[in-house]
């Protein structure tokens, strides 16, 4: 099984997290919402797979490169 880590693309604040560890997701599903530059941006799953780990929680201020989630597929 391959694993892919989703990283924070841009400085901002996590508004909500839509999935939890163990959930299965499809490509394009929303993992969490990231508020940056006064916009709410969804972070999407790049693949069909299962969430192994979630690295963020709502209200958390994040920087580029930090781990949002790990997906196994």
């Amino acid at each position: 099984m391959a694993r892919e880590t989703i990283e924070v693309p841009i400085t901002g604040k996590i508004i909500s997290v839509a999935v939890k560890a163990g959930d299965t997701v499809k490509e394009g599903d929303v993992i969490c919402m990231l508020e940056s530059m006064k916009m709410e941006n969804p972070i999407l799953s790049p693949v069909d797979g299962a969430i192994v780990e979630i690295g963020v929680e709502p209200e958390q201020v994040v920087k580029p490169g930090e781990k949002i989630a790990v997906i196994e597929y």
Binding site: I10, S36, N41, P46
Partner: peptide
């Protein structure tokens, strides 16, 4: 491409 994040 869900991996794309062009906002910046």
């Amino acid at each position: 491409n869900p991996r794309n994040f062009l906002l910046w």
